[in-house]
Design a protein around this nucleic acid. Structure first.
Length: 466
RNA sequence: GGCGACGUAGCCAAGUGGUAAGGCAGAGGUCUGCAAAACCUUGAUCACGGGUUCGAAUCCCGUCGUCGCCUCCA
């Protein structure tokens, strides 16, 4: 009964052991806020939300920190183009992202630090690195001296020699060696700037995460997460910075989610092939995206498209359908096979999730329970008989962050239309009694066009949003 | 060119040494006035080629392919 996690650092699944018993510290790299967030960002956030929920389910007290990078070149560039204040621009997108987190049913992190609010800590950390000989100031900039970090490359599996011969690295006179990266950047007039020992400037990207993690979670943390596109250079550099300063291993487990792909390519802001979270949620229930993520393995690339989204939606519907009440008047007790399936699903769900958060496997066990519940219902098992199995389904779905009780394919509950739909169905029941099939079918078809699915049961008809 | 991950039925996807979960789609059936939902039945020897082993999808080597990173990127 131990959790195993795939650690990018060792390229192996390892038994999960925390620094402190029953406590987990997680730092996840959040977005750079210069544009609308897309469903790829949502995937990352969902993956770590699911991990966090499961760890809590398994009894851990989780400290979860996610940052916002609210000052960097892209933000400044974008603000210049739009002729707005870069801080306002960042603020606007942070606010939007927060709303997305809420809409996506993401548990709030313990803390959402921002680069601009941590300048003091960042400067302190840079000074510490300079004092230890790991960084040097150069013309208003400060660079990390990569050659001074013993294990540089250990996360991404790269060798310094290989990279130095790489053709993509620009030669920069201010750097002592080409791979050195900026900790502090001197600002140009008009750019956001803070006073520092090296003059007016702003922090480099990598140092902010090291600093925030250090000051909010401590020298060492349990899990550091992010998209696998951050492995190099971002996380490699974080390791270099933090470990050079503390002399201790930074994160015990490096966890990276795969990239969401749109038509065979990584969805990204720079490629421009994206679907924004806002656009997606305008058309779909948030649980559809979560289902898409759950049905795959978080480390692999995930295809996003009409087909996979459709699959996710139907799979979600199937889970929801299992929560339907017993047939009217049914009173049967829970049969043995249902009890057996409950025990089996309990074990299977936990075993799967313990194994590097194998959500697809866990879902498989949930679907087995779904079938058993449906079988039982068909056999006339009553509400009490179904309650335990349905309760378990709801509980485990909740662990994964699915809100099955929010019925309605696109997030609509019965809502204001309910009385009117009910009225139509009442009239339709009359038509059916009189065997006026053409008319009653017309009502059903027209309702279907409006997104209402009507299902005729033995007694009465039920309806739900498509 | 370098580093890394991956390649399981039409699609999505578990399984990592003992003869392949689950979902979607398809086919047939039960139920239904017809539908829908649900239930039952139905499909793959695991990219390819070698090797290790009594035995491999599962370990090793090679080939091909896909994706990611090497520049900002979840």
């Amino acid at each position: 009964m131990t959790i195993r996690i795939y650690n990018t650092l060792t390229r192996k699944k390892e038994t999960f052991e925390t620094l402190e018993p029953n406590k987990v510290s997680i730092y996840v790299c959040g977005p750079t806020v210069y544009a609308k967030a897309h469903v790829g960002h949502a995937m990352s956030v969902l993956v770590f939300d699911i991990i966090r929920r499961y760890l809590e389910y398994r009894g851990y007290e989780v400290r979860h920190v996610m940052n916002y990078t609210d000052v960097d070149d892209k933000i400044i560039q974008r603000a210049n183009i739009e002729a707005v204040n870069p801080f306002d621009l960042a603020e606007q997108y942070i606010e939007e992202f927060r709303q997305h987190l809420n809409d996506l049913n993401i548990l709030p992190a313990t803390l959402y630090p921002r680069a601009t609010e941590e300048i003091e800590h960042i400067i302190e950390m840079i000074q510490g690195l300079i004092e230890k000989g790991h960084a040097y100031a150069s013309g208003g900039d400060v660079y990390f001296f990569v050659g001074s970090a013993e294990c540089y490359g250990k996360l991404s599996g790269r060798k310094l020699e290989d990279m130095q011969s790489g053709y993509r690295i620009d030669v920069d006179d201010r750097k002592e060696t080409p791979m050195d990266f900026a900790l502090w950047k001197a600002s140009k007039p008009g750019e956001p700037a803070w006073e520092s020992p090296w003059g007016q400037g702003r922090p480099g990207w990598h140092i902010e995460c090291s600093a925030m993690s250090y000051y909010h979670l401590g020298e060492q943390i349990d899990i550091h997460g992010g998209g696998n596109d951050l492995i190099f250079p971002h996380h490699e550099n974080e390791i270099a910075q933090t470990e050079s300063l503390t002399g201790k291993p930074f994160a015990r487990y490096w966890v990276h989610n795969g990239m969401l792909q749109l038509s065979g390519e990584k969805m990204s802001k720079s490629l421009g092939n994206l679907v924004t979270i806002a656009d997606f949620l305008a058309e779909n229930d948030a649980d559809v995206l979560r289902m898409l993520v759950l049905n795959s393995s978080y480390r692999s690339p995930l295809k996003f498209g009409d087909e996979t989204v459709g699959h996710a939606k139907r799979a979600l519907d199937r889970l929801r359908m299992a929560l339907r009440p017993a047939s009217p008047g049914a009173t049967g007790a829970a049969p043995e096979f249902l009890e057996a399936q409950i025990a089996f699903t309990c074990q299977g769900f936990i075993d799967s999730m313990d194994d590097d958060f194998n959500t697809a496997g866990a879902l498989g066990h949930l679907f087995e329970l779904v079938r058993a519940v449906n079988q039982a219902r068909d056999q006339g098992v009553g509400p009490e008989g179904l309650a335990k199995a349905q309760g378990l389904l709801l509980e485990f779905a909740g662990v994964l962050g699915l809100e099955l009780e929010h019925a309605g394919g696109d997030g609509r509950g019965p809502g204001e239309a309910a009385p009117f739909v009910d009225l139509l169905l009442e009239v339709r029941a009359e038509l059916r009694n009189q065997k006026l099939w053409t008319l009653s079918d017309k009502v059903r078809d027209r309702l279907a066009e409006l997104g209402v699915i009507v299902e005729d049961g033995k007694e009465d008809a039920t309806w739900r949003w498509k």
